[in-house]
Structure formats: structure tokens, C-alpha cells
Design a binder for these strands. Structure first.
Lengths: 221, 221
DNA sequence: CACGGCCATGACATCGCGTGTCATCAGGGT
DNA sequence: ACCCTGATGACACGCGATGTCATGGCCGTG
């Protein structure tokens, strides 16, 4: 272990984080990162598929972990219970106590559309894994997909509230609140009002041209 | 109208679609597209922010349309009714009758991770627009976000089933089925079964090292 | 009808990302 | 001692994406 310092990935991630915070993601080049880490550009791309990926390292196992959490749970457990339990576990073991760090990360991701896309892809990967886990327990495909999407949505929505709050209510509280709100909103057996909503939507859609106009030169970052 | 043929965008999109179908998205270069369209590379990027965007042209107004559909509906309408109505409208006016076309598009998007990311971003944009529409009607932020995510999820899940089916049930049927399934799944009390799910999750999470392993050189397209 | 601004496009240059390829050099097993 | 493995450096290169300037129809104005 004399020729190369053994912590290449750690150095790369640290350097990238620093530079992204200092001068933004788009303005930071890979050579800058590798220079600060004492490595070469080629080495960077041996560790990360692209420049964005350096921000999402460490989450690579989440899909597989999520799938196992769902698939290997006791056979008798009901699906929603699994979602709620997983939500609580993730909230406690992954997020709680790291709020400022998560906030800083969110700021970086928000600053660049490309990073946002990558984040969405990661979420979709976890979602698909959860869905697969449910299918392994015999849950029909559509129900499995809905359970997975709902779980991921509940976590995402509650995380946003958790990060935006002024106080310091734990993430779990927001998750419970989100589930309660979702339930409240879906229990609506009022066909008359539903019909009103339909007609309104149809009115707005019917008369408007759906395809027209063109964007000019796009205002990029 | 003699110096330039006036349908630059149409030609670009047609050429891009053809080339993507012929030789794949990644293997197609922008110069190839512009050559077939009789234009230059620079012109391509005047119309589309990046190579992927040429596949998503025409959806640019969807977020604004969605926001208006929600925000400008009759004040008395209940939120879920709006979602259901919008779902039905979109299913009938946007998707119905285009199943093969939508299938082909899905195949292209599936073939490239970058296209998948862009698709997710578009979905997220529509979701945020719907959420904004609900907030304009006074719906609390968390509820608005949940409604929007739920609506988009229902549409997405039902579209997948609709595309995968052998028969030709209309998309609306799948949407109704999805809503019913989501309700059924959420219509569960919170007994001790939740604790079972929790313990299983905790067991799986507790003992495993969360950060380890590294991907080798990634297998790109 | 002539002038001039507007705007879409062409032509050119350039930067950074991402990849293929080969050489180099540690450690470990035989 | 030998070779294999595996991580890294060094170099080249193609393509995506952008800035800048030139060109020349279109259209409004006087």
C-alpha cells in the first residue's frame, strides 16, 4: 500500500463535495475534482459512471436492501404494515439526526437540473425494488406497484415537510401525518362532487389547442 | 419562405425518431439527425436543450395545463374528484387510441437510462404543477403534494398495465382499478401487524454494513 | 419602393464529459 | 523467482453542448 493512497473514493467524494459547495456543480469540472484529490480524470470515471454519480455514492445498495426488507418479512404481515414499518425504520436509522446534512445535500441537488434527474432515477430504482419485493410475496403487480409508489411518495413528501419546518419534529411524525392525510383524502364517496370535477376538467381541456407554440432558445443555467 | 424550409422542428423530430428506431438512441449522433433533416448541428440545439429533449417535445405545456385544470375548477369540487376527473380526461384525450405509438415510445425510452431520467423529470414537473394548482385553491401543502403524487402515480401505474395487457381494455378501466386497489390497500387498521413489519425491517437493517462495496467499471450502453 | 431592424439559420471555434487502450507497478499466490 | 490480478497513470479521441459572428429572407415603417 505504498504506491497509491488507499482511500481514492473517499478523497474524490470529499473533494467533489467541497468544490460543489464552493463554486456550484456545473462550474466544477472533473479535472478540478481529481486534481484536489491527487488523482487523474480517468480514475474518476473508473469509480463513478458520470460526474453526478459522485453525489449519490453509498446509496447503491438501497434498492436491494429495500427489496429484501419487503420480500423477507413474515408472510402474515399485511402490505401496508410493511410499508409503515419500513418507513419508520428508514426515518429512524437513515435520516433522523442528519437533518442539516440532508438539507445541504438538497440544496446542491436543487441547484442543478441534472442532479434532480439523477435523484429521481434513484427514487424510481428503490420504488421498483420495493415493488419487486411485494411481487415476490405474491402481491399482484398493480397492487405491488401502487404500494411501492405510495411508500416512496409518503417518505418523500414527509421529508420535504421535515426539512422545511422551523421546529424539530422528528421525521416519523411527518410520515404519520402524511399517511393520515392520504387516507383522509382518498375516502370520498361523493359522486355528485366528483361529477363536477370531471366536467370542469373536460371544459378546460376540450377547447384548448394542445399542440402549439415553440420554445425559443432555452435559458440555460 | 424560400431560403429555409419552414418545418425545421418537424423534420428534426421525424429524423430523430427514425434514427433512434433504426440504430438506437445512444448510437445516434446529433450530426446524423441534422444531416437527415437538412440542417446543422447548431440549429438542433437552438430548438432542443439536449439530444434527449427531441423525444419530449410537445409535452412542454402539460404542467401549465394541469395546474389550470386543478386551480380553475369549481371551488366546491372535492380534491379527489378533481384527480379522478383529470385522470379520465387525460386518459380519453391524450392516450386512448394511441396505444401502439405510446408502446413504441416506451421502448425507446426504456432502452436508454438517460431518457428514463428525462421522463421522470417530466413527470415530476407535472406533479409539481398539480400540487401548485391545489395550493392555489387553499389546500395545505402536504395534502396538495400527496394528491399530486397520487394522481401521477395512478396514471403511471395504470398506463403500464394498459400497455402490457393482451386485450384492449381502455386505459380508464385500469385507472379505476388502480384507484380501487389503492383504496383497498390503505383501508387497513393499524394493529400490531405494523410492529411485525417494523421488527422485520429493523432486523434487516440493524446488522448490515450500510456503506461498502464499489461498482467496477460500469457497463454502459 | 427603399431602408433597416428582426430573426432563423449557417459556419466556426471551443470546452468538458465520457471512453478505449496500453503501460506501469504494487501485492499475493504458486 | 514467477506470474497473475487489480488499481492507477498517460494519452488519444469522439461527441455533446455553447458562444460568437456572418448571412440573408421577412416585415414594418416612412
Amino acid at each position: 500500500m505504498s504506491r497509491w493512497r488507499p482511500d481514492a473514493r473517499e478523497r474524490l467524494e470529499r473533494a467533489a463535495l467541497e468544490l460543489f459547495a464552493e463554486q456550484g456543480f456545473a462550474a466544477t469540472t472533473v479535472p478540478q475534482i481529481t486534481a484536489r484529490a491527487g488523482l487523474t480524470t480517468r480514475t474518476f470515471f473508473r469509480h463513478y459512471a458520470d460526474k453526478r454519480e459522485v453525489l449519490f455514492a453509498g446509496e447503491h445498495e438501497l434498492p436491494e436492501l429495500a427489496r429484501r426488507m419487503i420480500a423477507e418479512a413474515p408472510p402474515a404481515a399485511d402490505p401496508l404494515g410493511l410499508i409503515v414499518g419500513a418507513l419508520r425504520t428508514v426515518a429512524d436509522t437513515w435520516f433522523e439526526g442528519r437533518r442539516d446534512e440532508v438539507r445541504r445535500r438538497r440544496e446542491i441537488v436543487r441547484s442543478d437540473p441534472g442532479l434532480g434527474e439523477r435523484e429521481l432515477r434513484k427514487r424510481a430504482g428503490i420504488c421498483e425494488a420495493i415493488s419487486a419485493g411485494f411481487r415476490e410475496r405474491g402481491v399482484p403487480a398493480m397492487t405491488a406497484a401502487l404500494l411501492a409508489e405510495t411508500g416512496v411518495t409518503l417518505l418523500h413528501v414527509s421529508i420535504q415537510q421535515w426539512l422545511d419546518q422551523d421546529g424539530d419534529r422528528p421525521l416519523g411524525h411527518f410520515a404519520e401525518e402524511a399517511l393520515a392525510a392520504l387516507r383522509a383524502v382518498l375516502h370520498v364517496p361523493d359522486p355528485a362532487v366528483t361529477a363536477t370535477g370531471m366536467s370542469a376538467a373536460a371544459t378546460l381541456t376540450g377547447g384548448s389547442t394542445v399542440r402549439s407554440g415553440r420554445p425559443r432558445e432555452r435559458p440555460r443555467a
